[in-house]
Amino acid sequence: MAMFATGTAAETLAQSAPMGPPRSLWADARARFFRNRAAVASLIVLGLVAAFALFGPLVARHSIETIDWAILGNVDEAGGPCFLSGPDNEIPPCSDSGHYFGTDAQARDLFARTVQGTQISLMVGVVGALIAVVVGTLYGAISGYFGGRLDNVMMRIVDILMSIPYMFVLILLLVVFGRSILMLFVGIGLISWLDMARIARGQTLSLREKEFVEAAIATGVHPFRIILRHIVPNLLGVVIVYATLLVPSMIIYESFISFLGLGVQEPLTSWGALINEGADQMRQGLWMLLVPLFFFVVSLFSFFFLGDGLRDALDPKDR
C-alpha cells in the first residue's frame, strides 16, 4: 500500500481545491429557481400585485367610502370602468370621474376598494404564513428533536386542535367578539401552524438521525442551539415551499369567511367581500365581479406556481 506523507497531501489538495466563488446550497437553489420561467413570471406578477396594493392609494382619486352621487341611482349604466367610456354609453370619461375600475353598487370607487381589499387579503395570507413558519417550525422542531414523552404530548395537542372544526370556531369567534381584522388574524393564527408543525416534526425526526446532528451532540452543543443552527436551517427548504402554498389557502379561508358576510367590516373590504358583492350584481354590472376575481385568481395562480418553482429549486431530489 503506497502511503503518502501528510506534508505532500496539502499540495495535492491545493490542486483539487474547488474553483469559482463559494456555492452555498441557497445559491444553488437560487440559480435553479431563476431557470424556471413560470416561477419567475409568477414572482413578477406577485411583485406587481404587491406594488398595486402598496402604491394604489397614491393613484386612486377617491377614498374607499365616498359615494359618487352623480352615478348613484344609475350605477348599471354609468358605473362601468371609465376606460370603456364612449359615445354609446353613459360612463363618464376617466378625466372626469377617475373610476378606473368603475364603481360598486353603492357608487363607491372600485379601484380604491380593490386596492384596499388586496392589502387586506395579502396581509391575511402573509401573516398566516408567517405565524405558521415561526410557530409551526419551532414547535415541530422541538417536538421532533426531543422526542419521547414531550413529542407525544406536543403532537397530541396538535391532533386535538386539528380535530376542532376550525371554520365553525372562527365563525363563533367573529360572532362573539365582533367582526374585526384582529379577530380574523387570531383565528387564522390559531389554525395555520398545525400542519406546519407536523411537517417540521416529520422532517426533524429524519434529520435527528443524521451524523452532523450527532456530531453536534457529541461535541456538547446545547440542544436549543442544535435546533436553531442545525435542524431549522435544514428544515427551511420544505418550510418555505409549504409557506408559499399556505399563503393562497389562507387567502381562500379569509375570502370564504368574508363571502359569508363575516370577516372584515364595512367600509373595509377584502377580495372575498368584493367578490361577494360583485356576485350579487353580476347581472347588471359584471365588472364588479370580474375586477376582484381577476386579482384573486391571478395572485393564487402565481402563488401556486411560485411554490412549485421553490419546491423544485430547494429540494431537487424529491421532484
Binding site: S24, E211, F212, E214, A215, A218, T219, G220, V221
Partner: peptide, 21 residues
C-alpha cells in the same frame, strides 16, 4: 456537554457528518 471538549468523534460518512447549510 462540557466534557465534550475532551472527547471528540470522527464519523464514517464524511459528507453526512457535515451540516450542508
Amino acid at each position: 456537554r462540557a466534557h465534550g471538549r475532551h472527547v471528540q468523534m470522527i464519523f464514517q460518512d464524511p459528507l453526512a457528518a457535515l451540516n450542508p447549510r
